[in-house]
Write a protein that binds this DNA or RNA. Sequence first.
DNA 1: CACATCTTTTGAACATGTTCAAATAAGGTC
DNA 2: GACCTTATTTGAACATGTTCAAAAGATGTG
Lengths: 216, 216
Amino acid sequence: MDSKSAHTKAKVLETALGMFRSKGFAKTTMRAIAAEAGISLGSAYYYYASKDELVLELYRESVAEQRAAASTGMRGSSGLGDRIKLAMHAGIDALTPYHGFGGTFISSALPPQSAVNPFGEASAEVRENAIGIFREAVEGAKIPAFLRAQLPELLWLAYMGVVLFWVYDHSANQRRTRTLIDGAAPLIAKLVSFSRLPVVKPLVEEALALKTKVQA
Amino acid sequence: MDSKSAHTKAKVLETALGMFRSKGFAKTTMRAIAAEAGISLGSAYYYYASKDELVLELYRESVAEQRAAASTGMRGSSGLGDRIKLAMHAGIDALTPYHGFGGTFISSALPPQSAVNPFGEASAEVRENAIGIFREAVEGAKIPAFLRAQLPELLWLAYMGVVLFWVYDHSANQRRTRTLIDGAAPLIAKLVSFSRLPVVKPLVEEALALKTKVQA
DNA sequence: CACATCTTTTGAACATGTTCAAATAAGGTC
DNA sequence: GACCTTATTTGAACATGTTCAAAAGATGTG
């Protein structure tokens, strides 16, 4: 029966994510997950080949949550700056339950060979979804043609920087990260709008060309 | 005898760094280090409380090497773009022997509670030294006054981004990273020089203000 | 020298992520 | 139903970073 297997797999995931939220990543051992799910350690590994794969699901869910919240919020505001703000705040909102363990998460999320690393093969689908959020943010606004195609990915990259900042942010409720978003979003919007001007345009074009060149 | 103890400690470090270079971070186990150094596992831990502390020394040495090479090189060139290029290339040069294991290194280098994390308390001294490289790079050039103080740290931050890019760079000899540096350095220099212009100046000022605000 | 204190060394022990061969259950075929 | 194949489960085993209490050595004091 396929559904039996699927059910067990779902239970492992559910248990794991719940424990990640309540105990943190490091303290949630594979043995504890298996015990809580009522199966053996080996069985847990039968469904998820590594602890990283479980984290990938976490990443997937948080992006989905971010996207839903951002989409809803964007129906209300039309300025590029505000839409970027919304997208980024929604992301941090979705991650907030994990901030206490953010450090332990990132240590498993950044190594290139990890399934969770946001730039890697395994997370391609999730990354696409995340970039899509910024594609939505850009859609409503007037963007110079030469920037339009690349902008969503650039915004996602900037957002990755924000997340890194957030991981290290020990201020109460990560207020500094919120301040960063509130300040950076309008600045980015301004830069985009200025990118039409004769002084700025060549600079931006050069940067875009470099990005393309370096991605090959 | 103090020097006996110091000698043992030095031997552990020397052995560890050598093995990091030849075997990589993951494959260099604490047991292997101890064995190679001719002491017991417990003794190794007596001198270095964790594997991370060994990596911190690696970080320290690589920055020292980077600084030496950059300083020497900068005597020849005076343009800001060229000096930034030199500083960054020197850094990547120093890191190159570890690229094969870059991934494993970064996984231990980024968690906030790690001794190695470049933004943390434990690595403050090394970070200061690293920022100093960019302070040198800036010293020779004409920089707008309102930018002068903050620029070195900003350049270091940009360099951290380059290092992250390098970690994921699988092109032959990390050519893409070199291309990135060669393209980004003149661009940064141009941006700095343009920051005097009436259109660009308020943008840059706003960004600097945000940085200050967010650091508090 | 005898003793006390501090430094260094040791090896066993622990927890954890991961692997694996073997056992068991399920499903399909004759 | 008997048999074969595939899916699932299990528990033991392994490697590794780290901890720790106890032993051994060094140093200073009377």
